[in-house]
Amino acid sequence: MRRTTPITIAYTPDSDDAFYYDALEHGLVSMPGYRPRFRREPMAVLNREALTGTNEVTAISSVVYPAIAGRYAILSVGTSVGRGYGPVLVSREPRTLSALAGRRVGVPGVPTTGWFLLRTLCPGAVTVEMPFDEIAGAVAAGALDAGVMIHEELLYYPRMGLRRVTDLGAEWCRRHALPLPVGLNVVRRDLGSAGMRTVCTAISASLHHARLNPEPALARVSRFGRGATGGCTEQFVQMFANDDSQCMPADVRAALGVLLAQVVALGAGPAVPPIDIIEPAPATVAVA
């Protein structure tokens, strides 16, 4: 029997990330030479773990990359991109962005891309870090003045009686005339160039398989996020698991350079790293 090396792939407990890996997790696509196991943790946890290289492959907030570039390279597959949308700032009562200076605003981790956008567009806000799926409830209950919505909360918050203050992602896109790379998939450099390419190829094949067979994949991943009763899965997956996620296009690569330079200018990263992106092999990974 051919020996395989165990590898840990970590992603957020949300439907778009689960969609990327559905075929790999269910044995529909192989990763030659590796035996993947999967972990699901909130983005704030994955960002912290990336600082110490806990997982060979992990989702991260894009703004974290300057701090981990020495240990990880970027995969061309699995990027979450907002084209005119992104993290949304919401409140219970009508508010303006400027009125939130000095107010308590929930963010899904520090640093995360949602936190970064709030920090850039409303630097006077008092950020309160909390689990992403508890922020909307805290805003609705009046425990927070506002909150940054990510994942399926982007689509669900109106059902909780909350109002949009501003789409932070849309504002970033408008100001820069670029799409917003919200999140990245990264791979540890110690796998070597061949190993990193094998991983990228397998994940690319997994996402391609799910996109060719969306109904069973969506049915399986609908348990994540707000679940089947939330009714957000298909729309959310279309927003963040699409052509941009299959292979990072040129304008997203350019946008990533702009975003990372802003992160460093804000003092949230040590230096602007090279945009070092791993591409899949030309051949398609064999179906298991």
Rank of each mutant, 00 (worst) to 15 (best):
T166F: 00
G169A: 12
G169F: 04
G169I: 01
E171C: 05
W172D: 09
W172Q: 09
C173R: 04
C173A: 11
R174W: 00
H176I: 06
A177G: 11
P179T: 03
V182C: 11
V182T: 08
V182K: 10
L184D: 10
N185Y: 04
V187Q: 08
R188E: 13
R189E: 13
D190E: 15
L191V: 06
G192N: 11
G195D: 03
G195T: 00
M196N: 13
M196E: 15
T198A: 15
V199I: 13
A202F: 02
I203G: 05
A205Q: 05
S206A: 15
L207D: 08
L207A: 11
L212H: 08
L212D: 14
N213W: 03
P214H: 14
P214E: 14
L218P: 02
S222P: 01
R223K: 14
G227M: 05
G230Y: 04
G231E: 01
C232R: 09
C232K: 12
T233F: 04
V237E: 03
V237I: 04
F240D: 08
D243G: 11
D244T: 02
D244E: 07
Q246G: 01
Q246Y: 07
C247T: 08
A250Y: 00
D251C: 07
V252G: 06
R253Q: 09
A254E: 14
